[in-house]
Every structure is written in C-alpha cells, then in structure tokens.
Lab assay of single mutants.
Amino acid sequence: TEEVEKIVRELQKRGVSQEEIQRILKRNGIDPRDVEHVVRRLR
C-alpha cells in the first residue's frame, strides 16, 4: 500500500535496516508479504 511505502522509504532514509523495518511494520499489524513486496520494489 501507499502508506507502507511511505513508511519504508522514511525508515530507509534514516538508515534503518531491512530486518528492523520489517519488524517495526509487523508490530504495527502490516502484512509481512506487503512489506516484502514494498522493500523489494524500493531496492
């Protein structure tokens, strides 16, 4: 989703690792598959 993408991009800008990003998003109830998808697209 748009929202997830924004969050991921923001965290990446701050130098947060992929694993940490995924952990944060999972904690916020976001589907890990969505996270994977977004992270892969932004690489």
Score class of each variant (00 low, 15 high):
residue 21 I to C: 04
residue 16 V to I: 11
residue 14 R to T: 07
residue 38 V to Y: 03
residue 40 R to H: 13
residue 28 N to D: 10
residue 23 R to M: 12
residue 4 V to W: 05
residue 22 Q to P: 05
residue 34 D to N: 04
residue 21 I to V: 05
residue 37 H to E: 15
residue 24 I to W: 07
residue 4 V to I: 14
residue 33 R to K: 13
residue 15 G to T: 01
residue 42 L to Q: 04
residue 18 Q to W: 15
residue 34 D to C: 07
residue 35 V to I: 14
residue 41 R to Y: 11
residue 34 D to G: 02
residue 35 V to D: 07
residue 32 P to E: 07
residue 31 D to C: 00
residue 37 H to Q: 14
residue 8 V to F: 13
residue 32 P to H: 04
residue 21 I to D: 00
residue 17 S to A: 07
residue 18 Q to H: 12
residue 32 P to A: 05
residue 10 E to K: 10
residue 39 V to D: 01
residue 20 E to K: 06
residue 38 V to D: 01
residue 31 D to F: 01
residue 37 H to G: 08
residue 39 V to A: 04
residue 29 G to P: 02
residue 23 R to S: 10
residue 17 S to P: 08
residue 25 L to V: 02
residue 10 E to V: 09
residue 37 H to F: 08
residue 2 E to Q: 10
residue 10 E to N: 08
residue 38 V to P: 00
residue 21 I to H: 00
residue 25 L to R: 00
residue 4 V to E: 01
residue 4 V to N: 01
residue 34 D to K: 09
residue 24 I to R: 06
residue 43 R to T: 13
residue 18 Q to G: 10
residue 31 D to A: 04
residue 30 I to Q: 03
residue 29 G to I: 02
residue 22 Q to F: 14
residue 30 I to H: 12
residue 39 V to W: 07
residue 35 V to A: 07
residue 41 R to Q: 13
residue 26 K to W: 11
residue 35 V to M: 04
residue 43 R to E: 15
residue 22 Q to N: 07
residue 5 E to G: 03
residue 2 E to F: 10
residue 30 I to N: 03
residue 7 I to P: 00
residue 32 P to R: 02
residue 18 Q to R: 12
residue 24 I to F: 06
residue 1 T to L: 15
residue 20 E to Q: 07
residue 9 R to A: 06
residue 21 I to M: 10
residue 10 E to R: 08
residue 32 P to D: 09
residue 37 H to K: 14
residue 38 V to R: 01
residue 22 Q to R: 13
residue 27 R to V: 12
residue 19 E to V: 09
residue 25 L to D: 00
residue 9 R to V: 08
residue 40 R to A: 11
residue 19 E to S: 12
residue 1 T to R: 11
residue 32 P to G: 04
residue 38 V to A: 07
residue 32 P to F: 05
residue 16 V to Q: 04
residue 26 K to T: 14
residue 36 E to I: 05
residue 18 Q to E: 13
residue 2 E to H: 11
residue 42 L to E: 03
residue 36 E to F: 03
residue 10 E to P: 01
residue 6 K to N: 06
residue 2 E to V: 09
residue 24 I to Y: 06
residue 8 V to G: 01
residue 34 D to L: 15
residue 10 E to G: 07
residue 26 K to H: 13
residue 21 I to R: 00
residue 20 E to W: 11
residue 38 V to Q: 01
residue 29 G to A: 02
residue 25 L to A: 04
residue 23 R to P: 00
residue 16 V to P: 01
residue 11 L to C: 15
residue 33 R to S: 06
residue 38 V to F: 03
residue 6 K to L: 07
residue 4 V to D: 00
residue 37 H to P: 02
residue 1 T to I: 14
residue 28 N to W: 13
residue 7 I to W: 10
residue 7 I to E: 04
residue 35 V to G: 01
residue 21 I to S: 00
residue 25 L to Y: 01
residue 34 D to M: 14
residue 4 V to L: 15
residue 28 N to R: 12
residue 36 E to Y: 05
residue 12 Q to I: 15
residue 11 L to V: 00
residue 9 R to I: 08
residue 28 N to G: 09
residue 41 R to F: 12
residue 33 R to V: 08
residue 22 Q to K: 14
residue 31 D to W: 01
residue 18 Q to I: 15
residue 1 T to M: 14
residue 11 L to S: 01
residue 43 R to Y: 15
residue 14 R to A: 12
residue 4 V to Q: 02
residue 33 R to G: 05
residue 18 Q to A: 13
residue 15 G to N: 06
residue 23 R to K: 09
residue 18 Q to K: 12
residue 15 G to C: 04
residue 12 Q to E: 04
residue 40 R to W: 03
residue 29 G to M: 03
residue 39 V to G: 01
residue 23 R to V: 10
residue 31 D to M: 02
residue 8 V to S: 01
residue 18 Q to M: 15
